[in-house]
């Protein structure tokens, strides 16, 4: 099947700064594809190039087989965009936002009204139909932006940090809607720095850092390939460290804990308890977060 998005050696420079540095990826129809990375990794810049809002510096990019540089209007007609910033029309009510937005796609008033009602129902905002935007909560605004991105019945949905700043309830509701959209055959591309979000939603994902793609694959593959199946943690002390060195078990010190990555967490935990006299021993499955921190480092991003 022809990919929905195909990027080959894609580069974006802002003056001397390279925001996206020669990346390659391809998004297949019907999958949820994630871009994961710390702040400043180049995720949003990549989204902007896909949605024809920012021209690329070099490389090739095709969306539905078309070049965003020359066919922006055709491409934009087929995609829905949920931006990172909330940019609803504050002067309008909930339903008016959807109807005014439909007009930009050349959708007739009758069709727009019918779709708007259905979409409000879909994002559970029918009760807020005639409420002015300012009176909506943060979660409601994000849901309305999701509804707005669907007015043109897009074949590809692009979401830039869809659940940023939301409480757990609001976040779960958005996830539920995205899963539903996926089950209807939509292709979804999203950026996030919430690891849990990526793990739950994405069929495949890439981890970006400083403009480059570090790895790509399914969440489970990435965890297995780059970390391993299990992790054992114990409180850090010189004794524990010496003991691990003695047994020749590789470990990492993270703050006040010692971390051991292993395929046999039970054995390691037992040895830590019996031989090293370790405190607060904990075994857990490795997660995407471990992969992420391993690949992008623990330094703060600002």
């Amino acid at each position: 099947m022809e990919p929905v998005i195909d990027a080959i050696n894609l580069v974006k420079q802002f003056g001397p700064f390279t925001a996206v540095d020669t990346i390659n990826f391809s998004v297949r129809p019907g999958e949820v594809f994630g871009f994961l990375g710390p702040n400043g990794a180049g995720k949003t810049t990549t989204m902007k190039m896909i949605q024809c809002a920012s021209p690329r510096t070099s490389g090739t990019l095709s969306v539905f087989g078309m070049d965003p540089g020359t066919h922006s209007s055709e491409i934009k007609a087929m995609i829905g965009v949920v931006p990172q910033e909330t940019n609803l029309d504050t002067e309008f009510s909930t339903i008016e936002n959807l109807i005014v937005y439909s007009r930009y796609f050349g959708i007739s008033k009758e069709v727009a009204e019918e779709r708007a009602e259905k979409l409000l129902d879909f994002v559970q905002l029918t009760e807020k139909r005639d409420v002015i935007i300012e009176k909506l909560s943060g979660g409601m605004k994000r849901r309305l932006i999701l509804a707005r991105a669907l007015v043109n019945q897009p074949k590809l949905l692009i979401l830039d940090e869809p659940t940023i700043g939301l409480d757990p309830q609001a976040r779960h509701l958005i996830w539920e809607k995205l899963k539903l959209l996926r089950s209807l055959g939509n292709t979804i591309v999203l950026t996030t720095h919430y690891l849990e979000e990526a793990e739950r939603l994405c069929d495949r994902l890439v981890i970006m850092n400083k403009g480059t793609i570090l790895v790509q694959g399914s969440p489970a593959e990435l965890v297995l390939d780059h970390v391993g199946s299990g992790i054992v943690e114990a409180e850090h002390s010189p004794g524990v460290e010496a003991c691990l060195l003695d047994m020749d078990i590789p470990y990492e010190v993270v703050g006040d804990i010692v971390q051991v990555v292993t395929d046999n967490p039970r054995t390691v935990a037992q040895e830590l308890l019996s031989k090293c006299d370790a405190k607060r021993v904990l075994t857990r499955a490795a997660t995407l977060e471990d992969v992420f921190l391993k690949l992008t480092g623990r330094g703060l991003r600002e």
Partner: peptide, 14 residues
């Protein structure tokens, strides 16, 4: 402030 232009250029309007 409103980011209205950003919202509109995500549609077929240039």
């Amino acid at each position: 402030y409103g980011k209205t232009f950003d919202a509109i250029i995500a549609t077929p309007v240039s």
